[in-house]
Simulated assay, not measured.
Amino acid sequence: MAKVRSPTTAVPVRNAFREQQWQEAHERYLVCARTVFERLGYHGATVADIVVAANGSRATFYAHFRDKADIAACLFERTLPSGTAMYHRVVEFPELNREIVRAWLDEQVLGFWSRHRVEVEAVNHAMAADPAVAARHYQWIVDAVRLAGWPGTGVPTGLTRASLLVLQLERLCYHWLVRGVEHDRDQLLDILADLWFRELTVLGEDRP
Protein backbone atom coordinates (compact mmCIF):
# COMPACT_ATOMS: atom_id res chain seq x y z
CA MET A 1 0.00 0.00 0.00
CA ALA A 2 1.34 3.39 -0.92
CA LYS A 3 2.24 5.58 2.00
CA VAL A 4 -0.25 8.40 2.52
CA ARG A 5 1.55 11.72 2.96
CA SER A 6 0.20 14.17 5.47
CA PRO A 7 -1.23 17.25 3.76
CA THR A 8 1.05 19.41 5.90
CA THR A 9 4.33 17.75 4.97
CA ALA A 10 4.61 19.44 1.58
CA VAL A 11 3.81 22.93 2.89
CA PRO A 12 7.31 23.75 4.19
CA VAL A 13 8.76 22.71 0.82
CA ARG A 14 6.37 24.97 -1.07
CA ASN A 15 6.98 27.81 1.38
CA ALA A 16 10.74 27.37 1.11
CA PHE A 17 10.50 27.47 -2.68
CA ARG A 18 8.40 30.61 -2.62
CA GLU A 19 10.74 32.22 -0.15
CA GLN A 20 13.69 31.40 -2.39
CA GLN A 21 11.89 32.90 -5.38
CA TRP A 22 11.10 36.01 -3.36
CA GLN A 23 14.70 36.38 -2.18
CA GLU A 24 16.08 35.88 -5.68
CA ALA A 25 13.74 38.51 -7.12
CA HIS A 26 14.55 40.90 -4.27
CA GLU A 27 18.28 40.51 -4.82
CA ARG A 28 17.92 40.88 -8.60
CA TYR A 29 16.16 44.22 -8.20
CA LEU A 30 18.82 45.41 -5.77
CA VAL A 31 21.69 44.43 -8.08
CA CYS A 32 19.99 46.10 -11.03
CA ALA A 33 19.18 49.20 -8.97
CA ARG A 34 22.86 49.59 -8.11
CA THR A 35 23.77 49.35 -11.80
CA VAL A 36 21.12 51.91 -12.73
CA PHE A 37 22.11 54.32 -9.93
CA GLU A 38 25.75 54.05 -10.94
CA ARG A 39 24.93 54.73 -14.58
CA LEU A 40 22.24 57.41 -14.26
CA GLY A 41 22.64 58.76 -10.74
CA TYR A 42 19.91 58.68 -8.13
CA HIS A 43 17.94 61.62 -9.51
CA GLY A 44 18.28 60.50 -13.12
CA ALA A 45 17.13 56.95 -12.38
CA THR A 46 13.47 55.95 -12.30
CA VAL A 47 11.59 52.92 -11.05
CA ALA A 48 10.89 52.11 -14.70
CA ASP A 49 14.65 52.03 -15.41
CA ILE A 50 15.19 49.57 -12.56
CA VAL A 51 12.27 47.39 -13.66
CA VAL A 52 13.62 47.21 -17.22
CA ALA A 53 17.14 46.39 -16.01
CA ALA A 54 15.73 43.60 -13.82
CA ASN A 55 13.55 42.29 -16.66
CA GLY A 56 10.66 42.47 -14.23
CA SER A 57 7.39 44.30 -13.76
CA ARG A 58 6.24 47.33 -11.81
CA ALA A 59 3.85 45.10 -9.85
CA THR A 60 6.74 42.89 -8.73
CA PHE A 61 8.87 45.91 -7.89
CA TYR A 62 6.18 47.37 -5.66
CA ALA A 63 5.67 43.99 -3.99
CA HIS A 64 9.25 44.35 -2.73
CA PHE A 65 9.86 48.09 -2.38
CA ARG A 66 7.77 51.11 -1.54
CA ASP A 67 9.47 53.44 -4.03
CA LYS A 68 12.87 54.54 -5.33
CA ALA A 69 13.95 55.87 -1.93
CA ASP A 70 13.08 52.55 -0.31
CA ILE A 71 15.15 50.49 -2.74
CA ALA A 72 18.07 52.89 -2.22
CA ALA A 73 17.74 52.33 1.52
CA CYS A 74 17.59 48.56 1.07
CA LEU A 75 20.65 48.76 -1.19
CA PHE A 76 22.57 50.52 1.57
CA GLU A 77 21.36 47.90 4.06
CA ARG A 78 23.24 45.25 2.10
CA THR A 79 26.53 46.89 3.16
CA LEU A 80 25.73 46.83 6.88
CA PRO A 81 27.03 43.34 7.81
CA SER A 82 30.46 44.06 6.35
CA GLY A 83 30.41 47.54 7.88
CA THR A 84 29.61 46.13 11.32
CA ALA A 85 32.38 43.54 10.92
CA MET A 86 34.79 46.33 10.01
CA TYR A 87 33.91 48.34 13.13
CA HIS A 88 34.08 45.20 15.26
CA ARG A 89 37.78 44.90 14.40
CA VAL A 90 38.41 47.75 16.83
CA VAL A 91 37.92 45.34 19.75
CA GLU A 92 40.41 42.96 18.11
CA PHE A 93 43.28 45.47 18.07
CA PRO A 94 46.29 43.96 19.89
CA GLU A 95 46.50 47.30 21.66
CA LEU A 96 44.92 50.70 21.27
CA ASN A 97 47.42 53.18 19.90
CA ARG A 98 47.35 55.88 17.28
CA GLU A 99 49.40 53.95 14.70
CA ILE A 100 47.08 50.93 14.74
CA VAL A 101 44.02 53.17 14.52
CA ARG A 102 45.50 55.06 11.57
CA ALA A 103 46.35 51.85 9.70
CA TRP A 104 42.81 50.54 10.26
CA LEU A 105 41.29 53.76 8.97
CA ASP A 106 43.57 53.79 5.94
CA GLU A 107 43.38 50.13 4.92
CA GLN A 108 39.85 49.17 5.90
CA VAL A 109 37.53 52.07 6.67
CA LEU A 110 38.34 54.35 3.74
CA GLY A 111 38.45 51.33 1.47
CA PHE A 112 34.97 50.30 2.64
CA TRP A 113 33.43 53.69 1.89
CA SER A 114 35.17 53.85 -1.49
CA ARG A 115 33.84 50.43 -2.52
CA HIS A 116 30.31 51.39 -1.57
CA ARG A 117 30.23 54.90 -2.98
CA VAL A 118 27.20 54.09 -5.18
CA GLU A 119 25.19 52.90 -2.18
CA VAL A 120 26.31 55.87 -0.08
CA GLU A 121 25.38 58.43 -2.72
CA ALA A 122 21.99 56.80 -3.35
CA VAL A 123 21.02 56.61 0.31
CA ASN A 124 22.07 60.22 0.92
CA HIS A 125 19.76 61.41 -1.84
CA ALA A 126 17.03 59.11 -0.54
CA MET A 127 17.40 60.54 2.97
CA ALA A 128 16.93 64.05 1.62
CA ALA A 129 13.75 62.96 -0.15
CA ASP A 130 12.23 60.74 2.54
CA PRO A 131 12.39 61.42 6.31
CA ALA A 132 11.60 57.75 6.99
CA VAL A 133 14.81 56.72 5.23
CA ALA A 134 16.76 59.29 7.25
CA ALA A 135 15.37 57.81 10.46
CA ARG A 136 16.27 54.30 9.28
CA HIS A 137 19.78 55.46 8.45
CA TYR A 138 20.40 56.86 11.91
CA GLN A 139 19.16 53.63 13.47
CA TRP A 140 21.48 51.61 11.21
CA ILE A 141 24.46 53.57 12.56
CA VAL A 142 23.41 53.04 16.17
CA ASP A 143 22.82 49.33 15.58
CA ALA A 144 26.19 48.92 13.82
CA VAL A 145 27.97 50.54 16.75
CA ARG A 146 26.04 48.44 19.27
CA LEU A 147 26.86 45.22 17.41
CA ALA A 148 30.52 46.21 17.04
CA GLY A 149 30.81 45.82 20.81
CA TRP A 150 33.17 48.71 21.53
CA PRO A 151 34.07 49.25 25.19
CA GLY A 152 31.87 51.89 26.79
CA THR A 153 28.96 51.54 24.36
CA GLY A 154 26.92 49.54 26.85
CA VAL A 155 25.71 52.80 28.40
CA PRO A 156 23.64 55.47 26.58
CA THR A 157 26.30 58.20 26.70
CA GLY A 158 28.94 55.87 25.28
CA LEU A 159 26.63 54.60 22.55
CA THR A 160 25.77 58.16 21.55
CA ARG A 161 29.43 59.21 21.56
CA ALA A 162 30.41 56.27 19.35
CA SER A 163 27.44 56.76 17.00
CA LEU A 164 28.34 60.40 16.47
CA LEU A 165 31.93 59.38 15.76
CA VAL A 166 30.76 57.03 13.00
CA LEU A 167 28.26 59.56 11.62
CA GLN A 168 30.97 62.20 11.44
CA LEU A 169 33.24 59.80 9.55
CA GLU A 170 30.47 58.84 7.16
CA ARG A 171 29.71 62.48 6.32
CA LEU A 172 33.39 63.13 5.65
CA CYS A 173 33.65 60.07 3.40
CA TYR A 174 30.50 61.11 1.53
CA HIS A 175 31.86 64.57 0.70
CA TRP A 176 35.43 63.38 0.10
CA LEU A 177 35.17 59.97 -1.54
CA VAL A 178 31.74 60.29 -3.17
CA ARG A 179 31.25 63.97 -3.96
CA GLY A 180 34.91 64.58 -4.76
CA VAL A 181 35.82 67.33 -2.28
CA GLU A 182 39.61 67.44 -2.35
CA HIS A 183 41.66 66.62 0.75
CA ASP A 184 45.26 65.68 1.39
CA ARG A 185 44.92 61.98 2.25
CA ASP A 186 47.88 61.74 4.63
CA GLN A 187 46.91 64.91 6.45
CA LEU A 188 43.31 63.79 6.78
CA LEU A 189 44.35 60.36 8.03
CA ASP A 190 46.55 61.99 10.66
CA ILE A 191 43.62 64.09 11.88
CA LEU A 192 41.22 61.14 11.84
CA ALA A 193 43.71 58.95 13.71
CA ASP A 194 44.10 61.59 16.42
CA LEU A 195 40.34 61.98 16.73
CA TRP A 196 39.50 58.28 16.77
CA PHE A 197 42.32 57.34 19.12
CA ARG A 198 41.21 60.01 21.60
CA GLU A 199 37.53 59.07 21.40
CA LEU A 200 38.13 55.31 21.61
CA THR A 201 40.34 55.93 24.65
CA VAL A 202 37.54 57.92 26.30
CA LEU A 203 35.05 55.14 25.51
CA GLY A 204 37.35 52.58 27.09
CA GLU A 205 37.61 54.68 30.24
CA ASP A 206 33.81 55.06 30.43
CA ARG A 207 33.03 51.35 30.19
CA PRO A 208 30.42 50.26 32.76
Rank of each mutant, 00 (worst) to 15 (best):
R146P: 07
T60M: 13
R39F: 00
N97D: 15
G41D: 01
V36A: 08
S114Y: 13
H26M: 02
V91C: 09
L75I: 04
E77A: 13
A48V: 12
V101D: 04
V118H: 11
Y42S: 00
N124K: 10
M127A: 12
E99Y: 07
R102N: 03
A59D: 06
T35S: 15
H116N: 13
T60C: 09
D143A: 12
A103D: 14
E38H: 13
F93W: 15
R117Q: 13
M86A: 11
L75Q: 06
H43P: 00
A144M: 14
E119R: 08
A122Y: 06
A144P: 01
D106H: 05
K68G: 00
Q139Y: 02
N124E: 12
L30E: 00
I71Y: 10
S82A: 12
A72R: 03
I50A: 08
E77I: 00
T84L: 05
V109A: 12
A63T: 13
H137R: 13
R115Q: 09
A135N: 05
A33S: 15
W113C: 04
V47C: 08
R98H: 03
A59E: 05
I141A: 01
A132P: 02
A144D: 07
V101I: 11
R34W: 01
F37N: 01
E121W: 04
I100E: 11
A45W: 00
R28L: 10
F112K: 10
C74Q: 15
A144Q: 11
V145P: 07
V109L: 14
M86V: 09
A73M: 11
A63K: 14
C32P: 08
I100N: 12
A122T: 02
G44L: 01
T60K: 15
A63H: 15
D67T: 01
K68N: 02
R34L: 12
R39P: 02
V120F: 13
V109D: 10
D106I: 00
S82F: 08
Y29M: 05
